[in-house]
């Protein structure tokens, strides 16, 4: 093989690597969940807590159906599903959300007298909604950082 052939082969290899990076980047952009998705999930999670605190558990089924619809719509419209959900982050999110859900219900019920029958569910719902929204923003940022890291590599 002549040095010219080697040089051509190297240039082609570099071109192929650039093309790979560009396609991986496109795939990750497709996988970034839209803002409305985070907003919808946070509102629904907040509504779930608010309904529990207000002792309106019969309405939970509506929230669950809406959550399922939102998740199904998002997965259908995104056209892609991400492979690498960092297990550590997913575990951490669950470790925050599940206890927080019950803690907020108990706390809101404890402070129900001080906060009022409307204020307590609303406050508890708002707190959980804010946490879920923060997690969704964190996920978006994580994917964007992953794309940026790929650009710099």
């Amino acid at each position: 093989m002549t040095s010219k052939d080697e040089s051509n082969e190297t240039a082609q290899a570099r071109e192929a690597l650039d093309s790979i990076k560009s396609m991986e980047r496109k795939a990750l952009w497709h996988a970034i969940p839209p803002r409305w998705f985070g907003v919808a999930l946070s509102v629904l999670a907040g509504a779930m807590v608010a309904l529990s605190v207000a002792d309106l558990r019969s309405y939970h089924v509506i929230v669950i159906v809406m959550m399922t619809a939102v998740l199904a719509y998002q997965s259908q419209t995104a056209g892609v599903s991400i492979r690498r959900v960092p297990p550590k982050m997913a575990g951490l999110a669950l470790m925050i959300l599940v206890p927080m859900f019950f803690l907020l219900i108990v706390a809101a019920q404890m402070f129900g007298d001080a906060l009022g029958s409307v204020g307590a569910p609303l406050l508890a719902g708002l707190i959980l909604a804010a946490i879920v929204y923060a997690l969704s923003v964190h996920e978006r940022m994580g994917l964007i950082a992953q794309i940026d890291a790929g650009d710099q590599a």
């Binding site: 991986e24 795939a27 990750l28 996988a31 056209g79 892609v80 599903s81 492979r83 690498r84």
Partner: peptide
């Protein structure tokens, strides 16, 4: 392959 690599699946 590059597009599918970071994904579970793609439409």
């Amino acid at each position: 392959c590059a597009f599918l690599a970071p994904l579970e699946e793609a439409e």
